[in-house]
Amino acid sequence: MLAVRNLSISFRMYSAGLRQHEITPITGLDLEVRAGELVGIVGASGSGKSLLAHAILGILPANARTAGEIYFKETLLTPDRQKRLRGKEIALIPQSVGFLDPLMRVGQQVRRAAYLSGANGSAEAAQRQVFRRYGLRDEDAERYPFQVSGGMARRVLVSTAAVGQAALIIADEPTPGLHPAVVAETLGHLRQLADEGRAVLLITHDIGAALTVADRIAVFYAGTTVEVAPAADFQAGGQALRHPYTQALWRALPQNQFVPIAGSQPPPDQLPAGCLFAPRCPHVSAACRAARPELRLIRGGWVRCIHVEG
């Protein structure tokens, strides 16, 4: 459904007067999502997760430059095609109610999304139907965004994506600071959308939450994919995982050893020349510092590390 190949995103910035410099928050990123599959993208903030979502939809700011390719349904996703497909074939579930128009009733916003999705039939009927599906009452449609609770807001936001027939749904941090029950409910909705045959991309910093519903997990570090592993590998324990960063993430989970990893992610304007994780890696060698490792398929998962063996 979706394939991202060697994607890089850079921004031209002005610093100290008129001196221009470029930062590259995403470098050499690869990812694949199939129909009916829910892929969780996990990584610390600043690892380029949201930018990936915006790059797929073609809504990056004007000063962004991209390299590499994105394929949607086996066809290259050009800016022109993105314009035609977003809202119809590709839908976004944003982070918070702050992404809704504060002066428009939520029902009307879902109806507008239905209209833009190009679905047949009346937008109003579609909105009523999707509201019923997510346990929202008809009168909730009359509320303004400031009048909906956190849980209701999640359902409205999921409704905007589910009201159409989008084949790919990107949920960008859909569960920030929410009650555990609401988190579980929202994740359940995403799982349902995947089970209907849609491809779902769940972007989150909460690896624990992603593991409860995802088929596969892609781990982002400093703007690149360091590992893509079946979710089962995380359940199997640290040994099944391939990349040292993924293993460190796994150890940092409360239910495991709860040990944080030392150091921090390099900022996008100070990336190391070799492996991006080298400065924090316990297995670092001269070869790691010399060149960026390629993605390799090891034991049914992709990993960007030269030390892992099959």
Binding site: L57, I59, R86, G87, K88, A91, L92, P94, G98, F99, L100, D101, P102, L103, M104, R112, A113, L116, S117, T160
Partner: peptide, 24 residues
């Protein structure tokens, strides 16, 4: 943010202005 989300939903420039811009 709401304009960005509307764009992601397929709203074009004048649709954006008509639906969300003028209202706000």
């Amino acid at each position: 943010d709401y304009a960005l989300f509307a764009t992601a939903q397929g709203e074009k420039r004048w649709g954006l202005i008509w639906q969300h811009g003028l209202r706000n």
